Simulated assay, not measured.
Amino acid sequence: MADLRPQAMIFVTEYIRNGNNATQAAIAAGYSERTASSQGSRLLKSVEVQQFLNKTEQNLNKDLRVMFADHAVNAFNVLLEVMNDPEAQHKDKLVAARDLLDRAGYKPTDKVVADVNTEGTIQIVFSDKMKKADSS
């Protein structure tokens, strides 16, 4: 990998940046438009270019994971604030609570719908799958 030419390194960077279009990456790296398609194809077949491409993508993915991990704490705090906000609407509190539980691995196994009317009565509607399990 140390022997990779700067033009090939630029090609890899541009290849990742433009969504894996080898022709456009070759043009951006300074190859002629006339030969860019064949140059891009040739570069992608190179073991050194593939190694550099894989290493660069791994580093990008690692950087993204770190960045998202940092923002995940902020997102968690926002959901917690909404859930605990006495001024928030009940539906927003429920959505925040459900999102927090989902992300913690407590996803519901099936759908249950609760309808509360203005008279204070509650109607619970179970899915067909849950009805079958109850009658067994």
Rank of each mutant, 00 (worst) to 15 (best):
I122Q: 11
Y31C: 02
T109Q: 14
E57I: 15
A75R: 08
A133L: 15
P108H: 12
R65M: 08
S32E: 12
E14N: 12
T13N: 11
R103C: 09
F126Q: 11
A8L: 14
D99E: 15
E87D: 03
N54H: 10
H71D: 07
V116N: 09
A96I: 13
V78Y: 09
T23F: 00
L60Y: 06
T56F: 04
N18A: 10
T23L: 03
V116M: 13
P6H: 05
T13C: 04
A104C: 11
N54W: 07
D70K: 03
Y106P: 01
A133V: 15
N59W: 06
A29S: 12
V95M: 07
A25P: 02
V47A: 11
T109V: 14
K55D: 10
K111T: 14
E57F: 05
N74F: 11
T118K: 13
R17W: 03
Q50D: 08
N117E: 15
A28L: 11
G40R: 05
R65L: 07
F52T: 06
D63T: 07
F11S: 02
D99P: 00
A29N: 02
A36Y: 10
A133P: 01
K107G: 03
L53Y: 04
A8H: 13
A114Y: 10
N77G: 01
A26F: 01
V125P: 01
V116L: 14
S135K: 15
L79E: 05
L101K: 11
